[in-house]
Design a protein around this nucleic acid. Structure first.
Ligand code: FES
Ligand code: FES
Lengths: 141, 141
DNA sequence: TCTAAACTTGACCAATTTAGTCAGGTATGT
DNA sequence: ACATACCTGACTAAATTGGTCAAGTTTAGA
């Protein structure tokens, strides 16, 4: 049970963005240097974040990215959905009547995993970017 | 963020075991048939469960496995640890002073992932095999 | 005693996923 | 014009997963 680096990087980059985008757009190059993430990889990630209206971009010299909402309006759920970092605990398709073993009833552990999924998602829905900023405010300067 | 099938199968198999081991040891063959899990794969899993004293085995004809503790004493944590289904959210080594980016300070998201890990582990520590049995008691017959 | 059921061990492998890289663009401020 | 920075898609090496396969050992029961 692991987090992928795509999800991890997305959050790191957005925290970085939230701290530095107050005056000018922030270039991916800067984020790449500060956070130690490959520029090419960041571009993939930001392409998805943009499609999901989490960030806005301006092109050209002095261009870069800006958050498109306030930090307290951006939940971890939103970020994770954007970059396809989904929590998947059950094996079966939830809507299907069939269980993961192909039988007509759901398997003995189905309910358990479903509870777990809810448990984890609750965490992601509560946390916003703002919470992370507070948590690291001592390092802002 | 996914559960591996090793962890999933381990729990399925143990629930099965808990329901049927009251009189005789249960053979992996039976579990394999009832739960639709490959016999060879089950053997790998039970080898680990045995090393971690979650089950006991008897060899020979009519042999099989039995739980080595009461269902309410077996927590999901125990099972998951046994089969190496670890929850790993942070990228860095926790004990290390270095962050995941190689820098001297922990990265901006470190605390977040750490909280998440605790959040998930809490769930696993609360749930015991017994809880699962109750949850599915209507199917016991 | 013989044999089949069932546990034990370790090597091996194909398919998938992950974590990127690479090679081209296009847009725009100075 | 030209450097900077966004944009897009194809590609791939390495790791992980989810098993299979082969070759045992142990023991109950006929
Ligand atoms: S996980 Fe849904 S039926 Fe097994
Ligand atoms: S996850 Fe620990 S420093 Fe980044």
């Amino acid at each position: 049970m692991k987090l992928t680096s795509k999800g991890r990087y997305a959050v790191m980059a957005l925290v970085d963005l939230a701290r530095f985008d107050t005056i000018n757009p922030v270039s991916l190059r800067d984020i790449s240097l500060r956070q130690g993430i490959s520029l090419d990889y960041l571009e993939q990630i930001f392409s998805k974040l943009k499609k999901n209206q989490i960030v806005k971009s301006t092109r050209g010299t002095q261009g870069g990215y800006v958050l498109s909402k306030k930090p307290n309006e951006i939940k971890l759920t939103n970020i994770f959905n954007a970059v396809d970092e989904k929590v998947k605990t059950v094996q079966c398709k939830k809507e299907s009547k069939k269980g993961c073993n192909g039988k007509a009833t759901k398997c003995v552990t189905h309910n358990l995993w479903d509870e777990l999924e809810t448990h984890i998602n609750t965490f992601f829905e509560k946390k916003s970017l703002e919470d992370l900023l507070k948590n690291n405010s001592e390092r802002v300067n």
